[in-house]
């Protein structure tokens, strides 16, 4: 794992960690821990998955360890990065509405049980294929299907309730 690999993958990991923990400070620490572990374990990386999937797997374990150790549900922080460049008033309205919807989804994600949240983040947000997600979460395809079904339903109920 080279310095270039780290530079490329670090923002991906950090964004995932922020979405999983809702806490940028914790996310920063977990990202660093995952990268250090990846560098240390690099000789064991067997190229059976992509580098991104492999390091995401390490990060997922760090996130789960974090919640397990703290025995807490994630806090609700709020980062607010610019979504798009805007050109007109109509564009501004559209962008504001899109940002509000994305913020609602992020908050709702933070309310899900950790395993469902991680399954949705890996499958729907990061776009990993099902086999990769099963390998990262160490679950069977049937269990993943259940996590996705419950998570998506629960997410929708939270969004509709607000």
């Amino acid at each position: 794992m080279t310095e270039v690999d780290v530079r490329l993958i670090e923002p991906v990991l950090f964004r995932f960690a922020v979405r999983a923990t809702r806490d940028p400070e914790v996310a920063r620490d977990l990202t660093q821990d995952a990268l250090l572990a990846a560098v240390a374990q690099a000789p064991q990386f067997a190229c059976r998955s992509s580098l991104k999937t492999w390091v995401l797997g390490i990060l997922v374990h760090k996130v789960q360890d974090h919640f397990r150790a703290r025995q807490m549900e994630p806090l609700e922080g709020d980062e607010d990065p610019a979504l798009l460049d805007t050109a007109s008033a109509a564009d501004v309205d559209r962008v504001v509405m899109a940002r509000q919807e994305l913020d609602r989804v992020k908050v709702a994600l933070g309310l899900l049980p950790v395993r469902e949240r991680l399954a949705l983040l890996l499958t729907d947000v990061e776009g990993l294929d099902r086999d990769e997600v099963c390998s990262v979460l160490v679950v069977t395809p049937t269990h993943l299907r259940t996590l996705l079904h419950r998570g998506r339903n629960r997410l929708r109920r939270i969004l509709e309730r607000d």
Binding site: P11, F14, R15, V18, R19, E79, P81, A82, L83, A98, E101, L102, V105, K106, L109, L120, L121, D124, V125, E126, G127, G151, R152, N153, L155, R156, L159
Partner: peptide, 16 residues
């Protein structure tokens, strides 16, 4: 709808 909302979150690719 949930899946689409989550994919939109991934597609937004917010700067970090």
């Amino acid at each position: 709808a949930s899946r689409d909302a989550l994919r939109a979150l991934g597609a937004a690719d917010e700067p970090v």
